[in-house]
Each structure stands twice: as C-alpha cells, then as structure tokens.
Design a protein around this nucleic acid. Structure first.
Lengths: 188, 188
DNA sequence: CCGCATTGAGACATGAGTGTCTCATGTGGG
DNA sequence: CCCACATGAGACACTCATGTCTCAATGCGG
C-alpha cells in the first residue's frame, strides 16, 4: 500500500478543479499512477467524487474552526472565514457545480452542518446590529459560496489576480459595490 | 417545417436549466417531439448548446437594452439590469456552468460584448462616485453573474422565494451585508 | 536471496449516449 | 383526390468512458 491516498485525492482535486470533465485516465495520469491503481483506491468515478466531497467538507470544517466564527465582530469573522476558505476554494467551486447534478439525491449531511454554522454567523451579525436584516442568512450563505466560486473562476480565467481573491470576495459580500460614507462601523 | 424551432429551444432551456445532464432523448420528450426531429433541427448536442448560448446572449442583450444602462444613476441601472435579467437567469445559470467546460475553446464573442457593457456600467458608477473604486469593474461583473446563478440555485433548491430573487441579488451586490447608516446616497 | 504484495500496462466487455438510416404514417396543399 | 413532405418510431453502428481481468515487472521485507 505505497500509494499515498491523500496525494491522489489532492491531485484529483487539482485537476478536476480545472477540468471538471476529466476522465479517470486523466486523473490517474495527474496523480502519477495507473488507472488500475486509481481504481483500486476508488472504486469508480462516483466513489472518487464522494471522497473529494468528504475532503472538501473536512477542509471546510477546518476553515470554520480556524475562523472562530463565534468570536468578535461578525464582520471580522466573515473576513477570517473567507481568508481561511481560500485554500479550499478551488475544490469547493468544483463541488459546488457538481452538486447541481445531484438533483435526485439528498446532499451530504456535512454540507448541512456547514451551512448551519455559516447561517448562524450571519444571524448573529443581524442580531448584533452589524448586518442588515432584509437579506436572509440563508441567502447570505448561498451568496458566500457563489462568490467564492466566482472568485475561483475569475482567477482561473485570468481576469483577476490571485492576491486580490480574499479581499474582493469579503469586501463585496460585506460592503457591496456602493461607496459608503467614510463614517463607518462604530464599534459595537 | 411545422416544428417551432423557438419552442424547442425554450423547452430545452427549461429542461437543461433544471437538469444540465439531460440526454437528447429527454430534451426531445420535453419539447414534445421525437429524437429524430430534434436531430433534424439541431445536429447534435453541441449544436443545441450553441443555439442555447446564442439564445442566452440574445436575451441578455435584450435585458441590457431594456435596462438602459447609460441613463440615470449607475445604482438604479444595476437594479434595472438585475430585474430585466431575471427571465433569462435560469438559462444564464446553465450557460454559466457550461462555460466552465469550454476550457480549450475561446468563448463566444457575444459574451465579451455583454461583459464589456456591464463592465462599462460599473466603471461609470466608479467615475461617478457612486461605486467604490477598490473593487474592479471586471470583478463586479463576474460577481453579478455569480450572484445571478446563486439566486437561481437558491430558488430551485427551495431555500428562497422567487419573489425575493431580484431584490436579494441587487441589494447584496450594491449594498453588501453590512448594515449601513441610514444617511445614504446623496443624489449625485 | 527468495517470496509476497503492489503496481503498471494492456486487453476485453459493457453500457450509455449519440449519429444515422429506413420506413410507415398522416397531413396539408395543389 | 393525390402527391409531397415532415414527422415518429425504431433499428443499427459507433464512440467513449468505465469496470474488470490478466500478466509481467518492480520492490520490499523476511
């Protein structure tokens, strides 16, 4: 058992992030192993995607932990969350579109948990008085994932610099496009 | 030539919006015609998707016209644009993810034109003083499409009401999540 | 040094989706 | 009324990704 399962998983994630229709052959080549060995590790494309989903959920939870959503201002927690989620964003963008294909089946419980935690953060910000209450926490959560995916694709297409990734997402999500009077954010 | 090509196209759009992996058989059934006739109209799945892309571009341009991006405040133009784009949003969301698969090929010129017009709107808003200048017009444009897609998926998954679609997207894109002091928007 | 396990390479079958063709139907116009 | 044309149904072959298998080579531990 010398093949590094985690290495294979990450190679697959890196490839599928760029080309979501890559074949098992291409995945195997990207991981530097043969298709046979790949199939010994993951019994089919479906199993591979499920494993990637589990990886994405795990990385997402790690980001949630590192962001310490319960501490300080909700605004700052959102910024921390976007920053911590950046390493996982490519994989998340892949899974985000992949989930659109899972119409029939119910989605993984892990996503529900993650959704709940982020939703709770936005709700905290609303009860805090930091966030506006006319946008539902569910929508803000969905928008966060959508903007993450948009950011990934923008960087991939060369329309934006990777170094701006975190800032652009957090700034747009929090502040929006409208210029705001310099008098901002009295500390709660 | 009794088959209504436009009807077939819209039926295909409606189906593929919900199930992007639908087969030609399913598309034909959804359009109420046989696979043979479908194939006589569109020589293959590729041709069908291209035709849908052309339709999406046309609807997008229609929305751009109706939104009168050059008139009045850029903020109001953005609101008009989101409102006018709503009927096309489902198709746009489908094409948005579909475009992620066109890695090799260059994208349709129509998208570039649309991108340019929306980018110009955001740039006008920046030069206006309405919009903040630390978010690039290209990013704002990308984010607009991303939020449109997120809105479509949220409505499809039942996490949000269709009636909130326009407002949620426009409000988040323009104002962001942060509550803003009631003193707003002195008319430019 | 030997034996066992894992890997790589490739052959092969399978299944789904697709492209293509034929033919019968039926429908509308001349 | 008859002809022409479009459609629907189905058969057929082809492609491609996949799942499965065999076998030789490699490498590692005992």
């Amino acid at each position: 058992m010398s093949v590094d399962r985690d290495h294979v998983l990450r190679a697959a994630a890196a490839l599928l992030t760029r080309k979501s229709t890559a074949t098992m052959d291409e995945v195997a080549k990207a991981a530097g192993i043969s298709r046979a060995t790949l199939h010994r590790q993951f019994a089919g494309r479906d199993a591979l995607v499920r494993a990637l989903e589990a990886l994405g959920i795990a990385e997402c939870e790690t980001a949630l932990e590192a962001a310490r959503l319960d501490e300080g201002l909700a605004e700052d927690a959102v910024r921390r969350l976007v920053r911590e989620a950046e390493p996982a964003s490519g994989l998340l963008a892949f899974l985000y579109t992949e989930n659109q294909l899972f119409e029939g089946e119910e989605q993984h419980v892990g996503w529900t948990r993650i959704d709940d935690r982020i939703t709770a953060l936005f709700r905290r910000g609303q009860q805090n008085g930091e966030f506006r209450i006319d946008l539902t926490p569910a929508w803000l959560t969905e928008a966060l994932f959508g903007l993450l995916a948009s950011g990934v694709w923008m960087v991939q297409s060369g329309k934006g610099a990777p170094k701006d990734f975190t800032r652009m997402i957090a700034e747009l999500l929090l502040g929006g496009a409208l210029r705001r009077d310099e008098t901002r954010r009295e500390e709660s």
